[in-house]
Amino acid sequence: TYYTVKSGDTANKIAAQYGVSVANLRSWNGISGDLIFVGQKLIVKKG
Rank of each mutant, 00 (worst) to 15 (best):
T1C: 15
T1F: 14
T1S: 11
T1M: 13
T1P: 09
T1W: 14
T1I: 14
Y2P: 04
Y2L: 09
Y2H: 08
Y2N: 05
Y2G: 04
Y2T: 08
Y3T: 03
Y3E: 01
Y3Q: 01
Y3K: 00
Y3S: 00
Y3D: 00
Y3R: 01
T4E: 09
T4F: 11
T4M: 09
T4W: 11
V5Y: 02
V5W: 05
V5S: 03
V5A: 07
V5L: 01
V5M: 02
V5D: 01
K6R: 11
K6Y: 03
K6H: 07
K6Q: 13
K6L: 09
S7T: 13
S7W: 13
S7N: 11
S7A: 15
S7P: 15
S7R: 11
S7H: 13
S7K: 13
G8E: 06
G8Q: 05
G8K: 04
G8D: 06
G8S: 06
G8W: 05
G8M: 05
D9P: 01
D9K: 01
D9L: 01
D9H: 02
D9I: 01
D9W: 03
D9F: 02
D9E: 03
T10G: 03
T10A: 03
T10F: 03
T10W: 03
T10Y: 03
T10P: 02
T10H: 04
T10Q: 04
T10I: 04
A11K: 03
A11M: 15
A11C: 15
A11R: 02
A11V: 15
N12I: 15
N12W: 14
N12G: 13
N12Q: 15
N12A: 15
N12H: 14
N12M: 15
N12T: 14
N12Y: 15
K13C: 11
K13S: 15
K13D: 11
K13A: 12
K13M: 12
K13F: 09
K13V: 08
K13W: 12
I14K: 00
I14C: 01
I14G: 00
I14V: 08
I14E: 00
I14T: 01
I14N: 00
I14R: 00
I14W: 02
I14F: 02
I14P: 00
I14A: 00
I14Q: 01
A15F: 02
A15D: 00
A15P: 00
A15V: 02
A16R: 11
A16F: 10
A16K: 12
A16H: 11
A16M: 12
A16S: 10
Q17R: 13
Q17Y: 13
Q17P: 00
Q17I: 13
Q17C: 12
Q17G: 06
Y18G: 02
Y18M: 09
Y18K: 03
Y18R: 02
Y18N: 07
G19R: 08
G19I: 04
G19Y: 06
V20F: 04
V20D: 01
V20T: 08
V20E: 05
V20S: 03
V20Q: 04
S21M: 06
S21L: 07
S21I: 05
S21F: 05
S21V: 04
S21K: 06
V22P: 07
V22Y: 04
V22W: 07
V22E: 09
V22S: 05
V22M: 10
V22D: 04
V22I: 12
V22K: 05
V22R: 04
A23S: 10
A23N: 09
N24V: 12
N24F: 08
N24P: 01
N24D: 15
N24T: 13
N24R: 09
N24A: 12
L25I: 09
L25E: 00
L25C: 03
L25H: 00
L25D: 00
L25F: 04
L25R: 00
R26I: 14
R26K: 13
R26Y: 14
R26T: 10
S27R: 13
S27C: 14
S27F: 12
S27Q: 13
S27P: 00
S27A: 14
S27V: 12
W28R: 00
W28H: 02
W28Y: 04
W28L: 05
W28A: 03
W28M: 06
N29E: 01
N29F: 03
N29Q: 02
G30I: 06
G30W: 07
G30V: 07
I31G: 05
I31F: 14
I31V: 07
I31A: 05
I31W: 07
S32W: 10
S32F: 11
S32M: 12
S32N: 12
S32V: 15
S32R: 11
G33R: 06
G33F: 09
G33C: 09
G33P: 07
G33T: 09
G33Y: 06
D34Q: 08
D34H: 08
D34G: 08
D34P: 06
D34W: 07
D34R: 07
L35D: 15
L35R: 12
L35S: 13
L35H: 12
L35T: 13
L35V: 12
L35I: 13
L35Q: 14
L35C: 13
I36E: 02
I36M: 08
I36A: 03
I36K: 02
F37P: 08
F37V: 11
F37H: 10
F37E: 10
F37D: 07
F37Q: 10
F37S: 09
V38A: 09
V38R: 05
V38P: 12
V38G: 03
V38W: 05
V38S: 06
V38E: 10
G39T: 04
G39F: 05
G39Q: 02
G39V: 03
G39M: 04
G39H: 04
G39R: 03
G39P: 00
Q40H: 05
Q40D: 06
Q40I: 06
Q40G: 03
Q40K: 05
Q40P: 02
Q40M: 11
Q40V: 06
Q40C: 06
K41P: 05
K41S: 09
K41Y: 07
K41L: 13
K41W: 07
K41I: 15
L42D: 00
L42W: 02
L42E: 00
L42C: 02
L42N: 00
L42F: 03
L42A: 00
I43V: 10
I43F: 09
I43Q: 08
I43N: 04
I43H: 06
I43D: 02
I43C: 09
V44G: 01
V44K: 00
V44R: 00
V44P: 01
K45G: 12
K45H: 12
K45M: 13
K45F: 14
K45P: 07
K46P: 14
K46Y: 13
K46R: 12
K46I: 14
K46N: 12
K46L: 15
G47N: 12
G47Y: 12
G47Q: 13
G47M: 12
G47F: 13
G47A: 13
